[in-house]
Structure formats: structure tokens, C-alpha cells
Design a protein around this nucleic acid. Structure first.
Lengths: 335, 335
DNA sequence: TTTGTCTGGACAAAACTGGGACAACATTGC
DNA sequence: GCAATGTTGTCCCAGTTTTGTCCAGACAAA
């Protein structure tokens, strides 16, 4: 295996013991050995006392295979694939998977496991418990672990989003203290903020300005969008929350952005929103599309339609629209 | 005075008995000796009566090795590593999914002199320029590079702090737009927030609650403190900005924190500050010291003194006071 | 005196290895 | 539908390596 030509820059030097591989991939030690025994999923080098020694390349393979399985692939099918082929399979699944998420239960083949949904709910519950017990360290750990199991877009949609809603809800109902919510929010701000730096930038990516308009102080939704679009080859110009329309325009023009994305959450009926949106749309070159999302976007449905602003209903819909923009296929308000 | 920092600011003077080392690292005395016997993990100096005397350097090594083991490394593999190599291994392991693409080629223009003599003001100017040109990517790059040149505490004190002040000042004078400031602030929020995860935690660190009181919406100062104290072996419970006194108390008690730190910046004369501070001090067990810092702390000098709240003038003074608390040497308001 | 540290060695628990068994479940063929 | 077959995660075993703990007797510190 050491002679495998690797296009990617992943290190093939064998050095990691099996326990560490288990930690990183979320697989059990037994399972890693079983996979090797049955399908030669990996073929680790050995120490002088026959201990298995894995390379970074092996770990990445195992991680991807785990995600592929989570998406319903069979081990037999994915085991022989190269790393590149695995990447393709996984990224393809992540989108298809989410599209199905929004469809009727009936059509769902058995392999889009009940396991997955209960599994993620378990994860979220565990995170809520960590928040409730003020265990910031555990909270971070759970967030990191969850990310191993699926692709970034799927993770944002199925874990982070629901988690944010549940934290908000629990605080409103008094199940969590304000201090708990503060802690969780502050930590998520750091965590989500770091997500987009998992991607590598070449400098030639199209830019997108991401923020929230005046009066909207909650930035996590916008930050999620920034992480999300990074995956699809955008370079976010992230401005944080509460940016006046004029400033958004100035920023978009100066940076040469190809799109603008806003997040609306709370308060939903802020009277400044219509003013700001109108102002923004009118000052921007018509070629720069504006996207609006977040739970409060629905409250301004008519206005948004009238202004010719896009308002995708899911993160996945946003991704698709942005791909059209990026590839030059965007042509005004589609809807 | 030229800022010639030693590569690592860790003291190599041998002075700690084995018991203290065990307490600080969470290892048993027997184990420390066993590791030395079998793998020469450390090679402590000896007193004239053959007692082992460990340096801060040794302690750091042992701490890291313990964490490496928790991550699944084998003792045989990590024992021979240098402190720097250990740091790399550990931070790689605990943040395995954090893409480290910082290996980008460093083409250093001929006009920049060698690393040591580069003036920090030049760095800050370059950062300001990146902000002004909305070059977020470059801004991030400069931040990362600057961090390599010095220790984290020194970096916060000499680069990040001044940078924040200059950005604020420039915005007020109209040299920067609000959009620029937003971009910079949002990015720094992510960057500083991630800093404390350069450190690794064993779970046995004393905790410190860090936040800003009601009305204080700027969190970067508090976040800097969180990053800072992580270096000295504290586990920050970071609550973000704008936390009511009652919630701070609840959080401190629930998490079993050994200290509380607040940051005051703007507005300096908010009438809620005295109320909140008084409330906080009176509700907290007298054994939990409260520290207040930030540019607005001076405005409340008398009150702070009267309440017996600590108000160290520099980040360094804060570190020292916290060390006293951590090692049980704290005894009420010292001043 | 009492408590803590030292050395060297013994011992036991934990972890890893190859091999195999087995139950849960999915798929296929009828 | 139902039975046969295939897939896959988990567990058990016995032998080896690695690692944590304990002990005894000598000495040092408080």
C-alpha cells in the first residue's frame, strides 16, 4: 500500500496506532480490524511487534468510508474505491441525502436508516446535556465528533440547525438558564466560525458578502451560511451581524462580490427590515443577486418577492442557487 | 527594548518536587518514575540528596504526553519526542479535522528583514491595509503569521490589542468604513476564539468564568483573556458578552469556577455597571475572586477597590494573580 | 517519630493480535 | 410471502506486548 500514488498531499507515512485511528474516525477498534480482515479496506504497516501502524491516508479513507456507510452505501461497494472516488461518492450523497430529507416518508428506502435520525437526535440531546451541565469541554468534543460522521453541509442541516433551535426553545421555556444559552452561543460562534477554514482557498474563488441587516443581532445563521458556501468554492466576506444596508453595498462593490446573503431571525417584525432590504436591493447593481434566509424570512415574503430577492427555503436550495450564480447560469429572479 | 522573546517562555530551572508535578499533571508519582525508568520520558535534575527536581519544561512535557496517550498514542512513540514535536502531535490529534493549510509557501520579499527584527508596527499596518482593502484572506494570513513570531501572551499584548485600538480609532475618524470594522471584528472574533484551542486540556484544570456584564456588548477583550489564561492551565468557561450578574453567579457556582473575570470597554459610564458589580461581588462566595479589566475599568476605580475586586492593569499582571489563585496562594484582596 | 522519596523488581491490568462464532438484518430467489 | 443467502457489527478466545500499580528496604525531610 505504501506504493500507492497519491495525488492528494496526504501523508502516507505509517505512524498511528489503531486506538488513535478509532478515536479519529469514530469507528471501533474491532470494526477496523474486521474491515481489514474481510475487505482489505486498509492494509496498515506493522511495527516490529506486529502492531498495526496507520498512515494519514488510511485514516482519511476510513473516515470517508464511515460517512459513505452512514449515507447508506454498502461496505462491499465502497471498500475497493480509491480515496478520490470515495470523496466523490460522499459529496454526491450528501446532497442527494438532504434532498430526500425533505420528501415524504413513503419513498424512503430502508437504508436511509432510522438509525441516522435517532442517531443525530441522540447527539443533539447529548450536546444539550453538556450545555446544561456547563461542560464546555464536553460540548466541544461532541461538536467535533459529530462532524466526523457526515459531510459539512449535512452536519449543519441536521445537527447545528436543530441544536440552535432547541437551545433557543429550551431557554424560552426556562429549561436552560440564560447563562447556559450564553455559553452555548459563544462556543458555537467560535466553532462555526472556524468551520470555513477547513477549506482551502486559491484566491480565485468568487466572493459573497454575508451578514445580517440592521437590528438583527443574531449572527449564527449567517455564519453557518459562510461555512456552507465555502464548501462549494465561494470565498465569504463575512461582516458579522447588524450591518446597515449602505455598508453592505459598499462592501459588495469594493470587494467585487458576486452575491450577497442575509440572515433574518429575531426580531421577525423589526420595522427596519423592509427599509433596509429595499435600500440594499435598489443600490446594488442588478447583476448582484441577494439571498435572504433564516426563520424570519417568511414574515417578509411579499416584499422579498417584489424586490426580486431570492429566498431559498433550505440550505441546500441556497447551495443550488449559488452554484447557478457561480457558473454564470443565474438569470434574475427565478422562483 | 527589543522584544527578544525566548522561543518558548517555559522555565527550565529545576525546582519542583515530584509530588507537585503529579498534582499538576494528573499523573501518579509512581507512574512518573516508571516512565522515566523505562523510556526516559524526562530526565529531572537531582538535589544533593538525589531527590528529583523537575522544571516547568518537564511538567509541560509530561502534561502533553498524558494528553497524547489519551488521544490514542503509545508511550513508546511519544516518549522520545521533543517538546515542540509533542505540541505538534497533540494539537494535530485533538484538532484532527482542523485543516492546517498554513504550509503555504512563504515568499518573503527582500525588503522584509529577518523575522526577529520585524517591527510589530509594520505587521499591524499591513493588517490595517488588508482590512481597508477588504482582503479578508490576506488579513487572516497576516494574523496567522504574526502568531508564529512570538508567544501567545506577547502576541495578544503587542499585536492584537493595539490592532483593535487602531481599528476603533480609524473607524471613528472615518479612515475606515463601518463595513471594514465589521469585517475585521467578525474575523477577529473567529480568530481569537480559536486561539484557546491551541492549548489542550486534561480536564483537571481549574475553571474561570469569563464574560462582560450587562450593557457591555464588546466581547473581544473578554475573549482575549480566555485565550490568555488557557496558556497558564486554566479552563475558561466563556459566556460571551452581556451577561447579567445573577447569571454569572449561577454559572460560577454550577461549574465550580475558581475565579471570575470581566471585561469593561464601552460604554464606560453605563449606570448598570456599579449595580452589576456590587450584585456580583455580594452573591459570590468570598473565596471566588473577581477580576475586572478593559479600558473602562479605570472609570470605576473606587467602587472596584471598595468591593475588593481585583483590577490588574496589564494582561501580565492578570496572569500573575491568577497563578496565585491556581496554586492556592491567593488570599483575599492583595493589591 | 512520621512522612515522603529513592531504587529495583514483581505483578496485574489493559491493550493488541489472529482466528472464529454468531446474531441482526438486508437482499435475493422462488 | 418465505426461505436461503449475503452482509456486517459485535463478541469471545488464547497468546503476546505494553503499561500501571504495588512492594520492600534504605534513606531524607519535617
Amino acid at each position: 500500500m505504501a506504493s500507492l500514488e497519491t495525488i492528494s498531499s496526504i501523508d502516507t507515512a505509517p505512524r498511528h496506532p489503531i486506538r488513535l485511528v478509532a478515536n479519529r474516525t469514530g469507528l471501533t477498534v474491532d470494526l477496523i480490524r474486521a474491515w481489514e480482515k474481510r475487505y482489505h479496506v486498509v492494509d496498515p504497516a506493522r511495527s516490529d511487534t506486529k502492531r498495526r501502524l496507520y498512515s494519514d491516508y488510511d485514516i482519511e479513507r476510513l473516515r470517508l468510508i464511515r460517512i459513505a456507510k452512514q449515507n447508506g452505501r454498502r461496505l462491499v461497494d465502497v471498500a475497493p474505491l480509491t480515496l478520490e472516488a470515495l470523496r466523490d461518492v460522499v459529496s454526491e450523497d450528501s446532497r442527494y441525502d438532504q434532498a430526500q430529507e425533505n420528501q415524504a416518508e413513503v419513498y424512503r428506502p430502508s437504508w436511509t436508516s432510522p438509525l441516522e435520525s435517532t442517531d443525530t437526535q441522540d447527539d443533539i440531546d447529548a450536546m444539550l446535556f453538556a450545555v446544561q451541565t456547563m461542560d464546555q469541554h464536553r460540548f466541544d468534543q461532541l461538536l467535533q465528533e459529530g462532524l466526523v460522521k457526515q459531510s459539512l453541509p449535512a452536519y449543519l442541516e441536521t445537527v447545528i440547525g436543530p441544536l440552535l433551535r432547541e437551545i433557543g426553545e429550551s431557554t424560552r421555556l426556562g429549561k436552560l438558564r440564560i447563562a447556559h444559552e450564553h455559553m452555548a452561543t459563544a462556543h458555537l460562534r467560535t466553532f462555526i466560525g472556524a468551520l470555513r477554514f477547513r477549506e482551502t482557498y486559491t484566491g480565485s474563488e468568487p466572493k459573497i458578502v454575508i451578514t445580517t441587516p440592521t437590528g438583527q443581532l443574531h449572527e449564527l445563521g449567517a455564519l453557518m451560511v459562510a461555512a456552507l458556501v465555502s464548501v462549494d468554492g465561494w470565498l465569504p466576506v463575512y461582516l458579522g451581524p447588524n450591518t446597515p444596508a449602505d455598508e453592505i453595498v459598499a462592501c459588495a462593490l469594493q470587494s467585487g462580490a458576486r452575491a450577497v446573503s442575509l440572515s433574518l431571525t429575531y426580531p421577525a417584525d423589526d420595522p427596519r427590515i423592509p427599509t433596509e432590504l429595499t435600500r440594499l436591493r435598489s443600490q446594488l447593481d442588478g447583476k448582484i443577486p441577494v439571498f435572504v434566509g433564516g426563520s424570519a424570512a417568511a414574515h417578509h415574503h411579499e416584499l422579498i418577492d417584489r424586490l426580486g430577492i431570492e429566498s431559498p427555503l433550505t440550505l441546500d436550495a441556497l447551495r443550488e442557487s449559488l452554484k447557478a450564480v457561480r457558473d454564470g447560469r443565474y438569470q434574475g429572479s427565478i422562483k
